[in-house]
């Protein structure tokens, strides 16, 4: 007999906060998904800035947005500026993924309107901690 198990999902779960991740790297998207999913977040993914803005148009309000900086079509800076221009999402916290050696990019992301940052490579605890810090 096949083993059967099931899980139930619905967006109604009041505890599950929604995080939008924007990253062109499948590896990074999977990593974020693994860490955030394990911590009980509902994760919605976008693959670049343009896609991120499209997804934001149609999805439920995310509680936090996490975005990469280097991406095709529209980079993280453009994406953050786009979010901050949107009436609906301008107050949504945005965390950028940066590397330790690149403080210039971090500053540029901040001036574009980033709320905080996560240094790559991250461990799940640090990631969740950063999300928790900015999530209302």
């Amino acid at each position: 007999m096949p083993r059967i198990f099931s899980r139930s999902f619905s967006r109604a779960s009041p505890l599950s906060k929604i995080v939008l991740t924007v990253d062109d790297s499948r590896t990074m998207r999977d990593m974020l998904m693994l860490a955030l999913g394990d911590a009980g977040f509902t994760v919605v993914q976008a693959v670049d800035g343009v896609h991120g803005l499209e997804v934001l148009e149609s999805m439920a309000m995310p509680d936090v947005i996490i975005t990469d900086i280097n991406m095709p079509r529209m980079d993280g800076f453009g994406f953050i500026e786009g979010v901050r221009k949107s009436e609906r999402h301008r107050a949504t916290p945005i965390l950028v993924l940066t590397t330790e050696s690149d403080s210039a990019k971090k500053e540029r992301a901040r001036s574009a309107g980033a709320t905080g940052w996560i240094v790559k490579p991250f461990n799940p605890d640090k990631l969740i901690d950063a999300v928790r810090r900015v999530a209302a």
Partner: peptide, 21 residues
Amino acid sequence: PRLVREVAAMTGKQVRLVTEG
């Protein structure tokens, strides 16, 4: 399951995933 969760969240549908084998 996560994919289902995502798509459910984005489409506003309620979904139960059952897997076998």
